[in-house]
């Protein structure tokens, strides 16, 4: 048995993601690459911090029963994480092809997952539909905790939901309402009605805070 690199899944701004066969298991190797545009000192600090944090978030999320990839190995010197490869479709590509009830089911699950994360002091930080993988069993996995953090601040939870809503608005304009409603249903089932309302008010406030936004004029 050995490690066989199969392909590059993506070369993002921050990391290169490889698909590998690792002792017979299909895995993802996420390697954070050095950035020439920042000073080497800051660069290494950021890459280490982010690798370590991402691994901790994934492991914690897993322990909460949230569908996320299993972490197999973390290397802070070479700033990579080795984790389970999730076989499935990106929700982003699949949303328009889904029947309504499946869309609702998926987003209710996502809402439930995010609710569980929030309830246990984790925010994902990049809740776009590119970071949600629908498996053949109908489970939606959350991936890429690269911008996540440990926080129970109302503000951070609010930003999380705001980003989720904005991602829906920019990429899935036709389905925003039903998807977000389903999301909130799942979210509320964990966080409760009162807490959810509090967070939604925060989202409203965050949206009105941007510079020169129309919501701000209402005041």
């Amino acid at each position: 048995m050995e490690i066989i690199r199969l392909c590059v899944i993506s070369k993002g701004a921050e990391a290169i993601i490889f698909k590998e066969l690792w002792y017979g298991i299909m895995v993802v190797r996420k390697v954070r690459i050095p950035k020439k545009y920042r000073s080497p000192m800051l660069d290494l600090v950021l890459r280490r911090q982010r690798t370590s944090l991402e691994a901790k978030l994934l492991i914690e999320a897993k322990s909460l029963g949230v569908p996320v990839p299993t972490v197999f190995e973390v290397d802070l010197d070479n700033t990579y994480i080795l984790m389970e490869f999730i076989e499935g479709m990106r929700l982003r590509d699949f949303i328009p092809k889904m029947p309504l009830d499946e869309r609702i089911k998926s987003f209710t699950q996502v809402g439930n997952s995010v609710g569980r994360l929030h309830a246990h002091g984790i925010v994902h930080g990049d809740l776009t539909t590119s970071n949600m993988i629908l498996t053949s069993s109908g489970n939606v996995y959350l991936i890429d905790f690269g911008l996540g953090m440990f926080s129970s601040e109302l503000e951070d939870r609010g930003v999380d939901i705001h980003l989720m809503l904005r991602a829906l608005e920019s990429t899935h304009a036709a389905y925003v309402e039903e998807c977000f409603k389903a999301f909130l249903k799942g979210y509320e089932s964990v966080m409760g009605v009162k807490e959810t309302r509090k967070i939604l008010n925060k989202v409203k406030e965050i949206r009105s805070r941007g510079r020169y936004v129309s919501e701000r004029r209402v005041r």
Binding site: G12, A13, E14, K35, Y37, R38, L42, L46
Partner: peptide, 11 residues
């Protein structure tokens, strides 16, 4: 500050 900006610009 510039690293933050660069990261967003890069993405």
């Amino acid at each position: 500050a510039y690293a933050m900006l660069a990261e967003v610009a890069e993405r």
